[in-house]
């Protein structure tokens, strides 16, 4: 059965790009997309996807807040941070329990970027 993913990003365009990548390249089933941290928590509860990706800077509830809440309710949740933020905030999120991160900008036109993205998803799915 295909793995499932929920994508949360406050940029509709990026959500669309990510959705296309997950479904067309990775063969994922994209269950839902959201635009802010509150939706991330809601959508996780509703769909319990194999993977949830989220941006860190989002309205309402930011990525770090959503990550904390999701992991509070579902300690095994697999959260992939996809963000341009690379400082202390990202270190924090990884310490809290985000599985890994992908650095924006999304360069699906670059081989290296796609290779790393695929490898990262593979690692997350294999982790227990």
């Amino acid at each position: 059965m295909a793995s499932s993913v929920v994508i949360v990003d406050d940029s509709k365009f990026q959500t669309m790009q990510l959705g296309r990548f997950f479904s067309d390249v990775m063969g994922f089933q994209v269950l839902a997309t959201g635009e802010n941290g509150e939706e991330a928590v809601e959508l996780y509860r509703t769909h319990k996807p194999d993977l949830i990706t989220m941006d860190l800077t989002m309205p309402k509830l930011d990525g770090r807040g959503a990550l904390t809440r999701i992991l509070g309710e579902f300690p095994d949740a697999k959260v992939l941070v996809i963000s341009a933020v690379k400082g202390p905030l990202l270190l924090d999120c990884l310490s809290i329990g985000a599985k890994s991160y992908i650095e924006k900008p999304l360069r699906f036109d670059k081989e290296d970027f796609v290779r790393d993205f695929k490898a990262t998803i593979g690692e997350i799915l294999q982790s227990s």
Partner: peptide
């Protein structure tokens, strides 16, 4: 302090994070 945070993260996650 940030460098120490990173060291801590590295210690904690070096097995499951590439």
């Amino acid at each position: 302090s940030q460098f120490m945070k990173w060291l801590e993260l590295a210690r904690k996650r070096h097995r499951d994070l590439r």
